[in-house]
Each structure stands twice: as C-alpha cells, then as structure tokens.
Amino acid sequence: MNKTVSRTPGRTWRIVFLIALLAFLYLPILILAVYSFTTSTQIGAIRGFSLQNYVTLFTMPDLRNMILGTIVLAFGSALIATVLGTLGAIGSFYSKSRFSGAMNAINQIPVVNADVVTGFSLCILLVVVLHISKDTYFPLVAGHVTLCAPFVYLSVMPRIKQMDPSIYEAALDLGATPFRALTKIVIPQIVPGILSGFALAITLSLDDYFIATYTKPATFDTISTYVVNATKGAQTTIKTALWALSTVIFLIVVLVVLGMNIRAMRAEKAVKREHI
C-alpha cells in the first residue's frame, strides 16, 4: 500500500493543480465582486468603497424589471414543466411499452438537441407558421417549458421505477379509488424526483439565452439576454451594476449549495444514528 502512495505524483503537486484550477474558475468572479463595491469603472484602478452599484441594481427600473422577469419566467415555466413532466412520467410508466418507448425517445430530443435549434424551430412553428405574436409571451413560456420538462421527466422516472408496485395494489384492495391511491401513495414516494426535477428546471431556465432570444418579446429581457446585449457597448453605470448582479447571484448560489449540503449531511448523520 505504501508503495503505491510513494509512486503517485507528489501530494503537493496535486493540491497545487486543484488550487490553480479553482483559481481559474473563481478569480474572475471574485475580482469582479471586489470591484463591485468600489466606484471604479474598470478593473485595475481601485477607487473608494461604494455601494452605488447595488443601489443602481435594485432601483433602476430596467434592471429591476429584467431580474424580476427572469425569476417569474423561471418559476412559472418550471412549475408547468414539473406538472407536465411528472404526469408524463407516471402515465408513460404505466403505459404499453410501445407508447412509453416512443415517449422516452421523443423526450430525449430536446435534451440532446442544441438550444439554438430548439429555439429557432419553435420560433418558426409558433411565430412564422402559426402567427402567434411574441408579445403574448406564449412562445417564450412554451420554449422554456420545452427546455425544462424533459429533464423533469428524466428525474422523476427512476423514482417511479424504484417504487414497490404492491403498495399501490394494496391501496386499491383496501378500497381506495385509483385517484386517491395515486395522490396518497404514488406521488409521495416520488416527491424527491419531482423536487430535483423542479430545481433543475429552474436552473435551466435561469441560464437559458438561446431559446429566450428566439422567442421573447422585443421589450422583454432575461438576465442572459440583457447581459449579452449590455456587453455590446453599454453605459458604464449599467456595466458596473452588472458586476453587483454577478456578485449577488454568486452569493445566492453559494448559500443554496451550502444549505443543501448541510441538509444532506444532517440526513446522513440521522440515518447513521438510526443504524446504531
């Protein structure tokens, strides 16, 4: 055992490698975070401390609207996608294999497809062929649901497969209606899959640029479309306010991930205690 350890490349070198890579991933965000608290308009020249960027971020109507719009769009389409995808997975699981096979295959298309193609094809169908105005938000919401629902389906399906089918049968034998058996027996067992599907749907919607670009109303912006347009020569006040936005989002992500990890660790400990 000692022999294998001594022959592996030095422990120090491995740590240096990992730290260098983490620096590559985090330094840009962290440096921007530092500068977001100053009056500097460029990286390099540190000026005085200021919260001006954060004030602008939350008071400028343009910025506030696009942040709220992004959040409402993400939660709305994630909700629709979760209902559709969950019911779809349940229905597909109990259907004949030919039907569920077809559904699995079609469900895979948006997953492997490039978002550019998904967005462009939806734009042609809904806007060019069916003449649905982008201003109705229908193409945008439909696009985001199309992006998210397949992932909900994929995260719910394994949970349904793990379920013990005899519990459902037992509920029916004991006189529950199929609907009651479904809501009281099936759904509670697949809740973890539904929740992770929902969370995944939100992150996909928040990160999307391409589908929104091809389907959104001209006057509406998500964070992604706004930032991309802003980099093409925006005012300095907006540019530096976006540094503040980047910092806020970074902190939220860190807190959420930290919270999830702590919860997972507690659950693990609880399980261990039960075993003792």
């Binding site: 840009p28 930032v227 980047s246």
Partner: peptide, 14 residues
C-alpha cells in the same frame, strides 16, 4: 449554476 453570461462578463474583464 451561476448565469453563464455573467461569468463570461467576469472572464472578459480579466
């Protein structure tokens, strides 16, 4: 999980 356009903005500045 951090918006890609904001991350690329940060990278661009550096």
């Amino acid at each position: 999980w951090i918006n890609f356009s904001l991350r690329i903005t940060a990278l661009k500045e550096i």
